[in-house]
Every structure is written in C-alpha cells, then in structure tokens.
Design a binder for these strands. Sequence first.
DNA 1: GTGAAAGCGCTAACAT
DNA 2: ATGTTAGCGCTTTCAC
Lengths: 354, 354
Amino acid sequence: MGRIQLVPSLAVDSGGWTSSKGYMNEIRTHSGVTLEDVAKAAGVSRSQASRALRNDPGVREDTKAHILATALKLNYTPNLAAQTLASRQSRAIGIVVGDILNPFEALLARECDQALRQTGYFAMLAVDGNVSSVRAFVDQRIAGLVLIGTPEETDDIVSASKLLPTVYVGRDLKAEGVESVSSDDTLGARLATEYLLKLGHREIAHVSGGHGAGARRREAAYRETMREGGLQPIVAAGRYNVDAGSAAADTLMARKKRPTAIFAANDLIALGVISRLAWLGYRVPDDVAVIGFDDIPLAASEPISLTTVRQKVPDMVSAAIDTVMKRLDDPAAPIRNMVVAPELIVRRSSGTEL
Amino acid sequence: MGRIQLVPSLAVDSGGWTSSKGYMNEIRTHSGVTLEDVAKAAGVSRSQASRALRNDPGVREDTKAHILATALKLNYTPNLAAQTLASRQSRAIGIVVGDILNPFEALLARECDQALRQTGYFAMLAVDGNVSSVRAFVDQRIAGLVLIGTPEETDDIVSASKLLPTVYVGRDLKAEGVESVSSDDTLGARLATEYLLKLGHREIAHVSGGHGAGARRREAAYRETMREGGLQPIVAAGRYNVDAGSAAADTLMARKKRPTAIFAANDLIALGVISRLAWLGYRVPDDVAVIGFDDIPLAASEPISLTTVRQKVPDMVSAAIDTVMKRLDDPAAPIRNMVVAPELIVRRSSGTEL
DNA sequence: GTGAAAGCGCTAACAT
DNA sequence: ATGTTAGCGCTTTCAC
C-alpha cells in the first residue's frame, strides 16, 4: 500500500498517505485541482511540477519532495485525458477476453487486471472479445494489447500485433510471429498420463479438446506417452466444455473394455466426465480415475477435488505483462514466445495406486 | 451493423460502410488524420466539421453529408483524449465486478459490455472489484459507474453514487438511496419452494446463501412458503459457493429424517450439493430433487441439467444501462430501484411428481 | 449556418 | 535545475 493507483507520479513514498484509513479509503471526485494550482501553491513552474510528479530526472530532491507534498495536500489528481493528449501515449493496456465465462480465461483476466496496476499502467477490459473490441481499443490509442483466448482468427491477431505491442496469453503463436505466453501442453499431458500409468492404470482414455493447436498437442503427447508405455491410446473426440465431457463419458463407458482412468483435455471436460460418471453409477476415483487440465477454482472445491495439470497463471501473466512493457520501451526488441511449464496437482479424483 | 464503435458522431447512416467485408473487418491504427484534415479536405472550418461529426444541430444537411463522407474517405477517427479534455466529459462507463469468477457476475458483466456499445458509450471493466478500482475510474473522469457484486461495504457504494451516475446490479440498494436493479428474491424463492411442494415433496430443505440481504430474503421466502404449506422449514446455513453446498449436503443427509428435496440459494451451492450427493451415493433427482438460483450456463449443461430460478440478465442489464443514461442527461431524476421478476426453469434435477 | 478564437490540462522542446 | 513557450486535437463561446 502507500501507493496511489494510476498515478505513478505520486507513487514515490510521500509519507503522507495513511494506508489504514484516510485518503486511501475515501472516494473523491476530481478536486478540480490542476497542475497549475499545484505549481502555484508550491511556488514553482508548471514544468517543474510536472517533472516532479512524473519522477523525471532533473529535479532537486527537496524541490520534488515539496511539490509532491503540495500535490498531496491539494488532493491533486492528474487529468488522464490531458496527459494522453499531450504526451501522445496513454497508460491504458487493453485486455480482450474471448469468453469470460470460461473460468480459466477469467482467471487470466483477473490476474492481468491486478498485475497491470502495479506497473503504472491500467487495464481496460473487453469481455465479448472480437475484432471490433480490438478496433475500439486501437481507436482509443491504448498503449498495448493483451489477448486472452480471442479472436479465433489468427489474421486479426497478426494485424493487431503490427499496430501496437500485443501479446497473446494461452496459445503459442510463434508460427504467426506474434508474441505469446502459453503453457507447455506436451509436458502437461505427459505429466498426467505418466501419473496414471504410475498408478498402475492400463486402460487410460483421453477426451480431446478439439482441433486447436493446443488440444492437438495434448492429445499427441498423451498418445506418445501411451505408446511408450506399450499401451493402446483410447481417444474420445471432444471440445473444451462440460457437455463434451459428458458425451465422452457415455462413449467411453460403453466400450467393451472400459477405461479405468480418463485424462480430460481440460477441467470443464473433466467436470462433465465426473458428473456423467456419477449419473451412470460409477464412482470417482474408485471405478474411474479422472485428471483434468487448467486447475480452475472449481477443481479445488471439496466435492470435485480434481487432480489436474495446473497452468501457472501468475507466471504466465507476469511474463505477458513483462513482454508488453519490454516492447513498449523497445519496439525493435526480438519477438518472444514464452512457454511456461505446468505442474500436476494431485487431488482426490485420481485415486491411489491400483 | 453499419455503425462504428465508439464514434457516435459517425453513427448516422452514412451509407459508406460495408457491413459485410471492408472497413468493418480491418484493424487499422489511428490514421493520424485529425479533425483539421477533414475540415480542410471538406473545405469547411474545424468547428463545422466538429458539429457535423457529432450530429450537432446547426449544420445544413448537405454540408453535414459532405463532411461525413470526407471523414469516411480519410478514415478519420476522433481522438478520444482530445474529446474528453475539451468537452470535459468522457464517453466511458466503468464496470466494476466483484468476482469475475462467479459465473453469474461474469454473465452480467458480459451483457453490460455488449449493451454499452450500442449506446455510444463504451465500457471500461475492472474485475478485481474494490474501492481502489472505483477510485481509479473516478480519476479517469468516467461518465458513469455500473457496480456488479462489489464492493461489500455499502458506504463506498454510497459515496461513489454521489460523485457520478451509479447503478448497482444484483442487489437492492433502495435503503441506501443508491439506484439499483435486482431480481425479486422473494418471488424466486417462492417459485422454487412451491414447485417442490407441488411435486409432492414434504421434506424440503434450504441451503442458505449467508447473511446478505438477498440471501436472507430467499431464506425468508422459503420459510414462509413452507409454513404456508404447513411444513417445518429445514435450513442449512451456507454461503454462495460450491463448498458450502457440499458441506450442507453432508449435514442434511445426516439427519434422521432425510430431505427428499433441496432448494439451494444459488447454482454454485446446488452444484456442490449435487456433487456431494453423488459421492454419498444418492441419485439426483431420484433420491433427492435439487433446485438452484441464477441459471448460470453450467446449470444448462447436459450432465448437470439443473432446475433453477433464472435471473433475467438481459432485462436487468438493459434496465441498469437505461438508468445510468437517464441520470446522465438529468442528474436530478428521481432515484429508481428496479426489481426484475425471475422465472423458474425446469430441468432434470427437480425430477417428476412423487 | 458558418468561421475565428480561446481554451481544456498537460507534456516537451527550448531557453536560461 | 528551473522557467518559458508551444502545442496535443478537440469543443465551445462568440461573432458574423
């Protein structure tokens, strides 16, 4: 605490803001106080006041302190519009979320929102992510763009990335030349499959997540791991949602040789699998062990207690923000495509050794 | 379609924008074209261009048409910062969401985001809703505020509402003098309880949602309906989440006289109840009928198929936006507290008549 | 109906 | 290290 949101200029420790009660917990409108007022009250020029407030070099320490104190006393808040207009660059970062109802995307979005506030920039979110949201942001001259699960069409992402610092979170876009941060799908799927193998399962099925690159990587890694174990892969085609999991459970349990373990391409699918298994009269994990992917909050809940491959959201987000910030001060920086290693979180749904 | 986001000035039918392909599907940065350029190209003054673009009265129809066409041709995009600075009012509406991981709040947020784009205003979202988000928005001189499930402390809401047009969605804040849109909790709880009664259930339990006003109203309505039916209410104290539902299921099924139906204060609780019941070996709806509240997307999924009291999100949101818009052009308008009637959506989880 | 002029509140050369 | 001078791109009186 002790920092003021959106006013990086005042972020230096000024010793005047009580972090307990006081200003921090009040909501006050723009006082009507301008930089001019602060300068006048502090007995300096507008430029010096501006420099001090923005922590620009070339201001004597004591002058700066005095100006800051004055600003504080007058309850000064910079006018963002004026700042943006004069400096020709805003401190807003647009976050476009494809499907905010997808818990994993919501998780990423929330983390971005929070992480951004630490940087002196602030987030503008659009949750019905599509091209028009991106365009609206561009029109607002935002400084950078964070794309989460949207838009589907890679073309739009590519064009966006040519206009302003852009990073895509959750998918690897190296091929398209767009900066991105994603999880290592291959490693994640291996982790899950190998764990099931280690528990002694032989009939391990996989419910896929569709035809996206990530889903295909997960499926491929599952297949490879199975083959390495000398086992026959069993794949039920699915999509990243609950209903697909439910349908897959039906298909899988209808086989003559029923699987004793199911690795779902994501947690939503796993939830569908579990719910449907219960309906069919099978017990998880006693009859069937289940593992998911993502680690959405629901997975950790007591009645679900889903073993899953956790995508490290905080790591991914901080990498993403870092990427945007880097590019912001060096547009010529090399394009980075970061891949974060996921980890297996063992809970009840995977059961114990057979 | 045929409208340009964020540029209400150009929103008049200009006949120049192809709604299929064309400009609408391209992303282009700010052309660098200013109002000055448009005016010059159209052979008029900056003021006239400004008026025409904003649909101000006092511009001859043909002049206006000409200016609009020119702007279009030059691919002009107004500089939002300049507009805000000069007019001293922005077209941004802040949406603060308390918990974006709550599907119901996400539903409201998404709807708001979409609805707002139709109004000429645009949404700025903060998803880690707390007072500081509100303050940050105020500092940005947003035009209005939509609060969704946040902040907990009513004081902050009240102070926010004094600063700028504010509406709270999802809770009734009449007592606090803050405009709000909410669902009729009493009606909703009655609907659910009466339906269970009608099916022939006698041992109907309720899992409450805590101590908030809404949760208390739901519980009260449940109790009253039970008493009217000559039955003894059975209440398990809970909170609006999955784990509470799970715990409540344990408690309830441990009773000597087990309930044959459970009305959960919201869908998340219901999900917890259902999951736990499955674990305990009970079948839904055969052994226990379950009804929720909210109608989150998960409720409609095949394996869950939850009967629930649907809060009419689109109605609530359009009422909320309408409220903000009304107050925007008349700060003295009477305070409105709208209550929307929910409806019972019958699915599999409530079973059939006993 | 139209144009000229004066800012909005700030940043960024350019001086000193 | 500090002050002076121009704008940033738009809206908005105020004249005509």
